[in-house]
Every structure is written in structure tokens, then in C-alpha cells.
Amino acid sequence: MQKLKTPDLQLLHDTNAPESINAQDHPFAVQGLTVAYHHKPVLWGVSYSAPKGCLTAIIGPNGAGKSTFLKAALGLIPKLSGETKVFGAPIKKALKNIAYVPQRSAVDWDFPATAIDVVLMGLYGQIGWFRWPSRKHRETALNCLKSVGMQDFANRQIGQLSGGQQQRVFLARALAQDAEMYLMDEPFAGVDAATEKAIVMVLRKLVADGKTVLVVHHDLETVRDYYSHILLLNGQHIADGPVETTFTSENLQKAYGGRLASTQLDGLSQASGA
């Protein structure tokens, strides 16, 4: 935790300040995150703390900085200001507690590796420098593949898998990392219906095990069915909280502005609500 000089404490009457609450309740707290590409702000002073043990969707229009938010919060891209704390510790020391699933397009799928090779990579952190994966590690990796229904494809070259299967492999790799916190960048992008269902199952299982999961999500129709919480972004923090109280046409209007018709908004916020 950051040591504060006494005068600062006078300013700490805001309940959102992560320092004022027990760090154990905040698996992932971001404070004042600002990111700019070519001197154009993409994210503007976003503060957010992910609810522990919940499945949260990050939603917002295109260019709202959803993926940027994940990457900058993890320190993977440079930021102008802001900081991230994981259970009160600076992000750099806590990266091993976090499994990050990048967008599928972020890697070269023509790489000479099989599905199980990729899942094993999730275990490299535990294996440590210089050592080679053991038989036990292979078994763990195979179990992770099993939990996403991919055990039959373990030895398939990753380039020969379908988009949905590749996404499942990525998910299995994240499972192998056995982290406290899961950050996923559009895992549902371009996957088939069966894969979508399988991914949702896995996400629910993670939450049931007490993990905290943050997912960049695109499809507003399914938000109510899949998630318990949301974070609405549009360059700035618009709103966050439980789906019932936050996924409102008012907030959506704020985030999406003129991009969603009002009838659409009403339909969404009432879909399966209350």
C-alpha cells in the first residue's frame, strides 16, 4: 500500500478511495487512469474497483477505450496518469495473480505450437526460469483443455483450429494460470454459438470458485443473461454496479449517445429485468 503523509488523509473522505477500505475487498482497483494515443485522450481519468467474486462486463461503444482500459490498467501500454492496485499491492508485483486473455487477433496463430503447448504457456510462470514442463504440468494443461471441451484437439496445430476453438484454447490457458483475477478482451468475438455457451459456463464456474472476472463485451443483448455487474465506459467512467440498477436506458444513453435508438434502449434495459 502506498504510504500517505498525514495531510492527505484529510482529503480521504471519499468512500471510493481504495486505501480507505480493506485491500482484501478490492482485487482490482484502478485510480484516475488516463491514456492518450498521439496526444488524443482515449481514456480520461477512469477510476473503478472491480467487485470481488463477480462476473463483470465492460461495455461501451466502439472507441470507448474498453480494451485500452484493460491493457493500460495492467501496465501493458504506457499511460499518462493513474495507477492500479491488486489487493492493495501495485500491479507490477501482482501480475502473477492476474490472467489476461488478449483478443484472439493479438497473436500469430501460424506459430508452430499445438493446443496443449499454448495451454502449457499458462503454467510457465509456476514452472519458473530454465526448467522444462513436467508430466504433471502436461496433465494440468490437459485438464484445463478438458474443462473447455477441447481435450480431443490437444495435439492439433493451433492454426488448424476454428476461431471458436482458438478462443477456447486461450480460455484454457487462462484457467491454467490459476489466478485470482481474470481479465478477458472480447472472448465472444467471432465465436460460434456452442463456444459462446461453453465460455459462459467456464466464466460462471470461475465466479463460483470465488474468482473475480472482468470481460470486455460487445453484445448488449446478452449482458443481462451473462453478467451480474457492468462497467460502462465511453472514454470516461460512465457508471458501474449491479446489472439491475446500472444497465439502464439512461446510462446506456449516456455511454452510447445517439448511436442507439431510444426504442432499442428501452428494449435492452427491460429485456429480462426485474
Partner: peptide
């Protein structure tokens, strides 16, 4: 192992 992961997925490699 390290060369493999850092060639395939630098972001994961960094986070591990």
C-alpha cells in the same frame, strides 16, 4: 520455453 512464449505472446510473457 522463454523464447517460445515471448515470441508467441509477448504480453502474456511479460505478465508472467
Amino acid at each position: 520455453k522463454e523464447l517460445k512464449i515471448s515470441s508467441f505472446d509477448p504480453l502474456l510473457s511479460a505478465s508472467l
